[in-house]
Design a protein around this nucleic acid. Structure first.
Lengths: 162, 162
DNA sequence: TATTGTTATACTCTATAACTATA
DNA sequence: TATAGTTATAGAGTATAACAATA
């Protein structure tokens, strides 16, 4: 398929407008920033817009779907967001009837977060939607490259400090 | 008594609670977001803080160092930022004496951006600083993995390098 | 005294709309 | 009428500080 006939306009720039990346060529962070334009755009179309979820809200739903008795503290660490940010985010998800905050019986300061029936349903729907989202990326990456990319990104992110 | 030392109700599980990433495991965008925490932190320490530059400001300097007669329009497209955002960004760099805006003799609506002597010096300094920055990442990635990662990210971005 | 979670506030980044000047 | 660049405004996203409840 000719790149010129690609229907998505955000991805391909006319050759004349492409700049020499110069010293940025070897800077991983620069290439990550560029690639994230693609992934964020894909997320918005497949999940963000149709389900009215931000990237972090989506991540929260899927993490709660896969883990029991998660506290806000643990979530904030896993997602690298601050506690105040998460607090407001959980408020919004709770107002939408997607999750509940239950007191931790073993520690009155802490909470257990759990998805409601509607929350589990939405989480499952969005999890299914990731299939089409990743399949779209596989127009550019083979399945092996896709897996390799994730492996290298994880190495770069490093095992989160214990 | 410190709960940490109370072994009666604790299992052998470590305190560090890493969550199951669940359906996020195969989502490239999620891993990109995690990896960018590492690269942004590294950028801030090596370049952002010591040179008082944002990521985009740094990218502008290096792109202008590598390309002549660049217009704001071309820069905005290359960096995927909006024209108003770039306009304010160029104001700041100009106030710092790092670049100039010259009218395009062939089109009165357009401009040519060029680095001042100080701008070239700073761009060169930061370009040199990327060596240490990337070397630090190579504690986690071999040189081959580093190159492979950039190649895969470029494929994903659809910005095939020249 | 330390920790969990919340509220309040501010700062950055980014997007959209309206404006100008040129073509 | 269309394009390049600017100005103005508003909306997310994120960070820090102060607070309440519990350990």
């Amino acid at each position: 398929m000719d790149a010129r006939t690609d229907t998505r306009t955000r991805t391909a720039l006319p050759r004349a407008l492409r700049l020499d990346t110069g010293a940025l060529r070897g800077v991983v962070g620069f290439h990550i920033a560029r690639a994230s334009v693609t992934t964020v755009d894909s997320f918005d179309r497949h999940i963000g817009t149709p389900f009215s979820l931000s990237k972090v809200e989506f991540s929260v739903l899927l993490l709660l779907l896969a883990n029991d008795d998660v506290s806000p503290k643990a979530l904030a660490q896993a997602l690298r967001i601050t506690a105040p940010k998460l607090s407001l985010l959980l408020d919004r998800l709770q107002e939408r009837g997607l999750l509940l905050r239950r007191p931790n019986p073993e520690d009155g300061r802490s909470q257990h977060l759990l998805l409601t029936r509607a929350g589990k349903q939405l989480a499952t729907q969005t999890a299914a939607a990731t299939q089409a989202m990743e399949a779209e990326l596989n127009q550019r990456l083979s399945r092996a490259e896709h897996a390799m990319l994730i492996e290298l990104l994880d190495k770069l992110a490093g095992a989160s400090p214990a």
